[in-house]
Computed example of a mutant assay.
Amino acid sequence: MQPATKLERRVVTAAEQALTSRRYVSPLDVLTGIGWVPPGLVTDWQQGRAPHLEAVAVVSADRLADALEVFHRWVDSRGLRPSEVEYLAATRDRQPLRFTAAGDPALELTYRTHWMPADLPERQREQLTAKQSKPPELVVVQALKAFTCVGCGRGDADLLMMENAGPVCLTCADLDHLVFLPAGDAAMTRRAKKASRLAAVVVRFNRSRKRYERQGLLVEEAAVEQAEHECLSDEDARARRRERDRERREAADETFQQELAQLIFQLFPGCPPPRAAAISEHTGTRGSGRVGRSAAGRALDPDAVTRAVVASVRHEDTAYDELLMAGVPRDQAREQIRNDIDRVLDRWRREPS
């Protein structure tokens, strides 16, 4: 399939990236990849805080259908094989998740179908399908404000689970025998979760970032004690492994930033070498959340790299930051400096004389 429209290019790029990184691709991968279903709102849907996926999309159901039509044309062109996957809510009752407001069975099946390469061995196909169908982690929310449990009417609890009828306290959710293990020690968390017969992830909404963030786990007390014993017994070995992992990450980051700088030169041969290096380092910093660390950026997608260059020019070569400091609204400020950005990019796209 040769993408022609902007939507087709975006859908195909998102689908190719998902298929390459995970050996399968789903409609949800594509819709999150093109930004029509924000990942944070997908979490709301998965945790029972939205009735269906269409309710958290930033576009209409008709536009979602347009993207799925493009996606299935691409699937046909690649000769991929289908595999139906269960989508269950991260709630105590594990209810099946709904994708559409109407609940049409054929469309629901379309969303639940994942696609894999035709040459993928049958055993790997079964393993992937089983992994994708695995029930999600139970999720408990740290409440930001007082709530009333719909089960017992209690109004002084600070932890809740969402159910169809509304929030319930841990007692009504049969989770009040678990203890809280704060996040921060990956080995403790991993081992306690493995040892606990029942566990739930604790999240809290971050208002400034507008997303739920993991705070820790609820696990059985005996599991915490077992995990503490195991961690004390191999603390030195884990410290050495962390140091080796840090060195490997640094080497990988350096290689990635060099490749990113090379692509900047290909797209903008007139860009000064120190500037290209600075852009690649800035946008490719691990954990920064910038364009270079996005899925498209890590795949060295030219559109993503161009966006990184544009962002650098906006802040370094125009009066954009000064306009924002002066109180000019962002959209107006961007409009005012648009020609300045175009002039710099036009100069950089030309071979140096």
Rank of each mutant, 00 (worst) to 15 (best):
L175A: 07
D176Q: 09
D176V: 06
L178D: 11
V179E: 09
V179T: 10
L181Q: 02
P182L: 07
A183Y: 00
G184C: 08
D185C: 07
D185Y: 03
A186G: 10
A186F: 13
A187R: 15
M188E: 08
T189C: 04
R190G: 12
A192C: 09
K194L: 14
A195F: 10
S196E: 02
A200Y: 00
F205R: 14
N206E: 13
N206S: 13
S208H: 14
S208W: 14
K210C: 01
R211W: 00
R211F: 01
R214I: 14
Q215S: 10
G216L: 03
G216E: 02
V219I: 15
V219T: 15
E221L: 10
E221S: 13
A222C: 09
A222V: 15
A222G: 12
V224R: 13
E225V: 14
Q226A: 09
Q226F: 05
A227S: 02
A227E: 03
A227L: 07
E228Q: 07
E228I: 03
H229P: 01
E230S: 03
E230W: 09
E230Q: 08
C231A: 02
C231F: 05
L232N: 04
L232H: 05
L232R: 10
D234A: 03
D234H: 07
D236H: 12
D236T: 14
A237M: 05
R238L: 15
R238P: 11
R240G: 05
R240C: 12
R241A: 11
R241E: 12
R242C: 07
R242M: 07
R246Y: 07
E247N: 11
E247G: 06
A252G: 06
D253S: 15
E254Y: 01
E254H: 11
E254R: 11
F256C: 00
Q257A: 03
E259Q: 15
L260R: 01
Q262D: 13
L263N: 08
F265Q: 12
L267T: 06
F268I: 06
P273W: 10
P273K: 13
P273G: 07
P273V: 15
P274Y: 08
A276W: 14
A276R: 13
A276N: 11
A277R: 15
A277D: 12
S280N: 08
E281P: 03
H282M: 01
T283S: 13
T283V: 14
G284K: 01
T285N: 00
R286N: 12
G287A: 11
G289E: 01
R290N: 01
G292W: 03
G292C: 15
R293G: 04
S294I: 13
S294Y: 10
A295R: 15
A295S: 11
A296Y: 12
R298T: 00
R298K: 12
A299Y: 12
L300H: 11
L300A: 02
L300Y: 09
D301W: 00
A304M: 04
V305P: 05
A308C: 02
V309P: 04
V310Q: 08
V310K: 08
S312F: 15
R314T: 03
R314N: 00
E316N: 02
D317Q: 00
A319N: 10
A319G: 04
